[in-house]
């Protein structure tokens, strides 16, 4: 659990400790901060988009079935429409022919929205990296919150990714410069949709979201 954010509360600036709150709870009094309850609500009802791309989609379906039961985490409501969904699980290889559609779906989802890149292909192209029609990672076009490695990741891994996303949401302050996108006016989260070019997508990446990091410097033997 993160520290409660320093919300302006001039009357009593000293925040309650966890021990004090537990003590109050024993007496039937529940105290919480706005940020905490807001994030709690946000993180416990993440509705994913019902959108499968490739092999990982089968494991995503398996995660929503009885054995793994994603509804334990409040995410069993797979919505077919992006307008009703909070979470885009990019479950599989994104080809260059499919990438504009994925980005369009992302743009159609209302804030607050999150993206999980599920599987090696969605992260980096995976085993199909060297294909001429395979996008080398969906994070070149849209911001990704959680990466789940695997080919395909087991349903447990997807559930773990979901729990990680919940933890990430619960740590977000609701005011200030670190507030998430949907609470700020200065961030435009629409991602431009690339065009089909003669040889490749144009542009082949979205520089506001993705910049190639500096390559790792390897100390080679002289």
């Amino acid at each position: 659990m993160s520290e409660p954010a320093p919300t302006p509360a001039p009357a009593n600036p000293a925040p309650l400790t966890d021990a004090e709150r537990d003590e109050l709870r024993r007496h039937g009094i529940l105290l919480t901060s706005l940020q905490e309850i807001y994030n709690w609500g946000r993180s416990r009802s993440i509705w994913p988009l019902n959108f499968g791309l490739a092999c990982c989609a089968i494991e995503m379906i398996a995660a929503s079935m009885a054995r793994f039961d994603i509804s334990r985490f409040g995410s069993e409501v797979f919505r077919p429409s992006p307008r009703q969904a909070d979470l885009l699980i990019v479950s599989g290889t994104v080809t260059k022919k499919m990438a504009p559609q994925v980005i369009r779906l992302w743009n159609q989802m209302p804030e607050p929205k999150y993206c999980i890149a599920m599987g090696a292909c969605a992260i980096s192209g995976g085993p199909f990296k060297q294909g001429y029609n395979v996008l080398k990672g969906i994070d070149r076009f849209i911001p990704v919150d959680i990466y789940i490695p695997g080919c395909p990741p087991r349903p447990e891994a997807l559930l773990n990714g979901l729990v990680q996303l919940q933890a990430k949401i619960q740590g977000q302050p609701i005011a200030g410069p670190d507030a998430p996108r949907h609470l700020r006016d200065d961030i435009n989260c629409d991602c431009p949709v690339p065009e089909f070019g003669a040889h490749d997508l144009e542009p082949s990446q979205n520089p506001t979201v993705w910049q190639p990091p500096a390559p790792l410097v390897r100390t080679e033997k002289a």
Binding site: S124, Q130, Y132, K136, H199, D200, S204, Q205, P212, P213, P215
Partner: peptide, 12 residues
Amino acid sequence: DYVEPDDYQWEP
């Protein structure tokens, strides 16, 4: 003889 587009800007 097809030359694929060069988009290997960064590889982990």
